[in-house]
């Protein structure tokens, strides 16, 4: 397997591609054991937050899957965004995202964040992707804990993809 640039030259050699693939599975393994989640309420009705809290309850127990909550965006791999992205909150949302180290993921959570509850208007952007680069969408009003878990597991795969797309060769362009 090799990838080519727009100019036709190879970006990764066979050996590098194999290394990236190794890394991909390593990251999947690695993040599968410690993916850290920061939540971000951009104007929710509090029901999504309650369902997110239920992820830690004995019925769902996301810790057994290697997923953890962190209060610090600087320790977070994944931003779980609820609410319709109110304009008055957008600056705080951007700062939270920027404080996270890469590679990072944004998961829009619930009907508000997906654009199904509030229209874009003077109060709100109407959906999370108007301000943040959303990778995974989880529908539901609010999404049940099982829907959240499914979305998070999809997100873990996406993060592994993101990491495998990075070049770890000094001087190489990607």
């Amino acid at each position: 397997m090799s990838t080519t640039t727009a100019g036709g030259g190879p970006v990764t050699t066979e050996a590098e591609a194999a290394a990236a693939e190794q890394l991909r599975s390593a990251v999947a393994r690695q993040f599968g054991r410690s993916l850290h989640i920061r939540t971000l309420d951009t104007g929710s009705c509090a029901a999504c937050e309650q369902e997110i809290r239920m992820l830690a309850a004995p019925h769902y127990d996301l810790h057994r899957l290697g997923l953890f909550f962190t209060p610090a965006p600087r320790h977070a791999d994944l931003l779980l965004v609820t609410g319709p992205m109110l304009r008055a909150f957008a600056a705080a949302a951007r700062k939270t995202y920027e404080a996270m180290p890469g590679p990072k993921l944004v998961v829009a959570t619930g009907a508000c964040a997906l654009g199904g509850v509030y229209q874009p208007d003077a109060f709100s952007y109407g959906s999370a992707d108007q301000v943040l680069p959303v990778d995974v969408w989880i529908p539901g009003c609010p999404p049940s804990p099982l829907a959240l878990l499914h979305g998070l597991l999809v997100a873990v795969g996406r993060l592994a993809d993101k990491v495998s797309g990075l070049s770890f060769v000094a001087g190489a362009s990607s």
Binding site: R38, D41, S44, I52, P73, F89
Partner: peptide
């Protein structure tokens, strides 16, 4: 705040 503990409102 407004971004404070995890899984609570802003």
């Amino acid at each position: 705040g407004p971004v404070r503990q995890v899984a609570v409102e802003s």
